[in-house]
């Protein structure tokens, strides 16, 4: 292992954590264990989809909890052929 590689080594646990949170939010919705994140995702997407064409595959939802602060991060990729926002309707 080169010295550079040693210093830039990325830990894998955060990736595991993120993948699990995303997957389980979805699976709990499917298997009936109600989950706020999955519900929020659906409702937020529904509102945005009313105005902008979005690809459900290009949506990333991330939650994080630190002590008393919980954050919900919604990343939606909007692709338009000519680069600008294209509003529906």
């Amino acid at each position: 292992m080169s010295v550079l590689k040693f210093f830039t080594r990325r830990s894998s646990a955060p990736a595991a954590r993120e993948r699990l949170q995303l997957l389980l939010a979805h699976e709990r919705a499917v298997f009936g264990r109600t989950d706020l994140v999955a519900q929020l995702k659906d409702e937020i997407l529904a509102v945005i989809a009313k105005h902008i064409a979005i690809d459900p595959e290009k949506v990333r939802i991330k939650t994080d909890t630190r002590d008393t602060l919980a954050t919900l991060e919604v990343d939606i990729e909007i692709r338009t052929p000519n680069g600008g926002l294209k509003l529906a309707g």
Partner: peptide, 12 residues
Amino acid sequence: GDMLKVDDVLEI
């Protein structure tokens, strides 16, 4: 950082 921590599993 190469294994999920106790708090990660508890939170999930």
